[in-house]
Design a protein around this nucleic acid. Structure first.
Lengths: 236, 236
DNA sequence: CACCCAGCTGAACGTTCGTTTATGATACTA
DNA sequence: TAGTATCATAAACGAACGTTCAGCTGGGTG
C-alpha cells in the first residue's frame, strides 16, 4: 500500500524506524500533491502511524517539511559526491544519471523548487556552481564549446534541466518520456527519438541561424530599449 | 491595497464588477501562493468583498480556480492572436514579447502549470503546436536551423522556456533577471549579459562539441540499454 | 518481580477552512 | 410608491486541519 523508499541507493542510511517512515511518506506526499495540499493525517496514514506521532517526532508540519528539505538536499549532495569520486570531471552519462537520481527525491525537488524553500534554493545554488565547475572542465577538455558567459550559461542550463523536471508531467504527455523515472531503466526507442535525440541536436547544432542571432544580438545585447521599438518604427 | 489587473491590455474585457475583482484577486493570489495555500477569505479580502460573495458568484473555490484557468488561457490566446495578426510568421522579438506577456497572468501560468489543470495542459499543447508551426516557418525562411525532430524540438524549446518561467524566482536570484516582469521595460545591461546574451550564444553556437554529441548519440539514440551499461562493463 | 521509559495511540482541543443561510441594501420597473 | 430582482453581507455551519495530551504498550534494567 505504501510506497516505501529504498533506504540505501548508495547512501548509508539504514533507518526503517517509524520516524524514517514518516519522513519518507512525507517526501512522497509533498512531491505528489505539494506541501500545502498534504495533511499530516495523510502522511500518518501512509506511514501507518497516528497523526500524533508525526508531531511527536518532528514538532510540527513545518519542521517536518524543513527536515524533508534537508534530507533530500543531503541525499542529492551524497549522490553528487558519489558521482564525483567515481567518474571524474564531466562524464555526460554519469551526470545525466545523477541528475535523474532517485525517483521520489527528484519529484520532491521538482515540487518544492517553486515553493521557495531556503534549503532548496541553497541546493540549487550549489548545483549551479557545480555545473559551472563541470562545464569549465568540459570546455578545457574540448567536450563543451567555449562561452562568453561561463556562470550564466551554467545557471541557464541547470535551470533549464530543472525546469524540464518540474514540468515532467507535460514532458510525459507531449513526448511520452517520464523524466522522474530512472532513465537507465527505460530502454525503448521513445526516449531516444523523443527526448535525447532532439536534445542533443539542439545543444550541438543550436537552434537559431547565425545571421538572425547576430541581428538579435545587435538589438538586445549591443542595442538598447530604443532599438527594441523597431517593430512599430523600423529604423536603420 | 488591491493589485488591480489592467482590464484592457489588448483584450476587450471591460468588467470591473465585484465578480471580476474577485477573479483578478484570485489569479494574483493563486499565482503568488498556489491554489491550495490560498483561502477564499484571503481572496475575498483582496477583492474587498465578503467570503460568501466569492461562493455566490462562482459556486465553489474549485469552480473559481476553473474560471481563472479559462480566463488566463483566453487572455493568452488573445495575445497570441494579436501577435499573429500584427507581425506575421516567426518574429523573435514579437515572440519574446508575447511569451513575456502580462505579469500576473504569466505568474499564474507558471504556478498552475504544475498543479495539473486540464485547461492549462490544453493551453500548453496549443503553445507547443503554435511553436512547431512558427519554427517550421523559421526553418523555411532560414532563420532557424533544420531539425530531424520538428515537433519534439518545438515541445522541448517551449517547455524549456516555460520551465525558466516557472523557476523565475531562481532565475532572478542567480542571474538578476525577473522573467515575470515585462522585458520591454527593462533596458539595463543586466538582462543582456545575464540572460539574452548567453541564451543567444547557447542556441546559436550550441553547447556540446560535435564529437562528444556523436558519441552520446551512439550510446543513447543508436545504441540500446546494453550500451547504456557501459559504465560498469565497458564493451566494444 | 517491579520499574520504567521510549515509542506510540486515540480522543480531543482550538482554529481555520469552504460553504450555507437568512437578511439587508440597492437599483430598476410598473 | 410599491414590487422585485440583483448584489452583497454577517453569522454560523460542519468538516478538516495542525496540534495537544493522558494513557497504553512492550522490551530493557534494577
Amino acid at each position: 500500500m505504501i510506497l516505501i523508499m529504498r533506504s540505501a541507493d548508495g547512501v548509508d542510511i539504514d533507518d526503517r524506524t517509524a520516524r524514517a517512515r514518516i519522513r519518507d511518506a512525507a517526501i512522497t506526499r509533498f512531491a505528489a500533491d505539494g506541501v500545502a495540499a498534504t495533511s499530516v493525517r495523510a502522511i500518518a496514514a501512509d506511514a501507518d502511524v497516528s497523526p500524533g506521532l508525526v508531531i511527536h517526532h518532528y514538532g510540527s508540519k513545518d519542521a517536518l517539511r524543513h527536515e524533508c528539505d534537508e534530507y533530500v538536499a543531503a541525499v542529492i549532495r551524497q549522490q553528487k559526491h558519489d558521482v564525483l569520486v567515481s567518474g571524474a570531471s564531466f562524464d555526460p552519462v554519469a551526470a545525466l544519471r545523477a541528475a535523474q537520481s532517485h525517483v521520489p527525491l527528484t519529484r520532491y525537488l521538482a515540487r518544492t523548487v517553486i515553493d521557495g524553500s531556503p534549503h532548496v534554493a541553497e541546493l540549487i545554488d550549489e548545483l549551479v556552481d557545480d555545473a559551472a565547475s563541470y562545464m569549465a572542465d568540459g570546455v578545457a577538455t574540448g567536450m563543451l564549446r567555449p562561452t562568453e558567459y561561463p556562470y550564466a550559461r551554467a545557471a541557464i542550463v541547470t535551470l533549464m534541466s530543472l525546469g524540464m523536471l518540474v514540468l515532467h508531467e507535460h514532458v510525459d504527455r507531449l513526448l511520452g518520456v517520464d523524466l522522474t523515472r530512472d532513465m537507465s531503466r527505460v530502454d525503448d526507442a521513445v526516449l531516444a527519438t523523443a527526448y535525447i535525440g532532439p536534445m542533443l541536436e539542439l545543444f550541438t547544432k543550436g537552434l537559431i541561424a547565425d545571421e538572425v542571432a547576430a541581428a538579435m544580438r545587435t538589438v538586445f545585447v549591443d542595442g538598447d530599449a530604443q532599438a527594441l521599438q523597431q517593430e512599430e518604427e523600423p529604423a536603420s
